[in-house]
Amino acid sequence: MASLPRLFLAMFLTLPLRADEMPEAFVAIDSAAPGIAVEARYFTTDNFVGTRIDGYEAPRCYLTRPAAAALSNADAALAPFGLGLKVFDCYRPQRAVDHFVRWAKDLGDTKMKARYYPRVAKSVLFKEGYIAARSGHSRGSTVDLTLIDRESGRELDMGTGFDFFGPESWPGSLAVNAQQRANRLLLRGVMTRAGFRPLQEEWWHFTLVNEPFPGRYFDFPVR
């Protein structure tokens, strides 16, 4: 009977984290790299759904510690040129992804269509890969971001806005002008040298190559 307390303690220590508990492997970007600007779009109504997204309880950015360190390096590489980074989304709770899925199934809700998907029918968002039941963001090492002028905070012109659904958002799209393509190429170069890989369909999307949780999707809220 004397071993029971130790048994119960061992069981307690091996219990999984609560769904609302941030693991130690994550860090807020404002503490890891305070020079990076944060515009948490899914905490606001300024996104393709048009409402605050489930799981975003504060306008913050969380990443795994290796991803945050790599992002800090990318920002530091831009500083001598008077440029910096602004993030739109980092870690994304699975409950937020579920919110996107519910929204995509409601074909009657198109209030943000003119701004975010003017030439794409909402009925094909799943088929064409704009919405999916899983997101790499939920693994904690993917970030959506852009370049800014470090002094003014003004975004560089990338040809489309963040989360624009359409081929114009492809990094190599010829639908945008030469300067806009150059800005995209600059962002891509800085991020890949810092250890991220780009996404073919979105100029703003990058994932850490050696992400620590390649097969795990988290659901703790951003708060």
Rank of each mutant, 00 (worst) to 15 (best):
189 G>A: 10
217 Y>L: 08
193 R>N: 12
175 A>K: 02
166 G>V: 03
154 R>W: 03
185 L>G: 09
8 F>E: 15
46 D>A: 13
118 P>A: 11
134 R>H: 07
117 Y>I: 09
213 F>K: 03
185 L>T: 13
22 M>F: 00
145 L>R: 07
83 L>F: 06
222 V>A: 11
65 R>H: 06
52 R>H: 12
185 L>M: 13
166 G>Y: 05
217 Y>M: 06
146 T>A: 15
12 F>V: 09
147 L>V: 04
166 G>P: 07
65 R>L: 08
179 Q>P: 00
202 E>G: 09
129 G>S: 06
64 T>H: 04
210 N>Y: 00
114 A>M: 04
124 V>K: 06
162 F>R: 04
142 T>G: 08
14 T>P: 00
23 P>Y: 06
11 M>D: 13
33 A>M: 09
43 F>Q: 04
183 N>Q: 12
194 A>V: 08
116 Y>I: 07
4 L>T: 07
182 A>R: 15
31 S>F: 05
127 K>R: 15
142 T>L: 14
192 T>Q: 13
89 D>G: 11
168 E>Q: 14
79 A>D: 09
9 L>Y: 00
188 R>E: 13
109 D>V: 09
154 R>C: 07
155 E>Q: 12
159 G>Y: 09
161 G>L: 12
76 A>V: 09
52 R>W: 02
22 M>P: 12
46 D>K: 12
51 T>K: 13
52 R>D: 07
139 R>L: 01
196 F>Y: 11
207 T>K: 08
206 F>N: 06
189 G>K: 02
141 S>V: 06
74 A>Q: 06
189 G>S: 11
104 A>H: 03
61 C>P: 05
52 R>N: 14
81 F>R: 08
187 L>Y: 00
217 Y>R: 08
71 L>A: 02
48 F>P: 06
212 P>S: 02
127 K>W: 03
97 V>Q: 15
17 L>T: 01
59 P>Y: 06
143 V>A: 03
153 G>R: 02
113 K>T: 05
80 P>T: 08
74 A>N: 00
31 S>A: 14
120 V>P: 02
72 S>L: 02
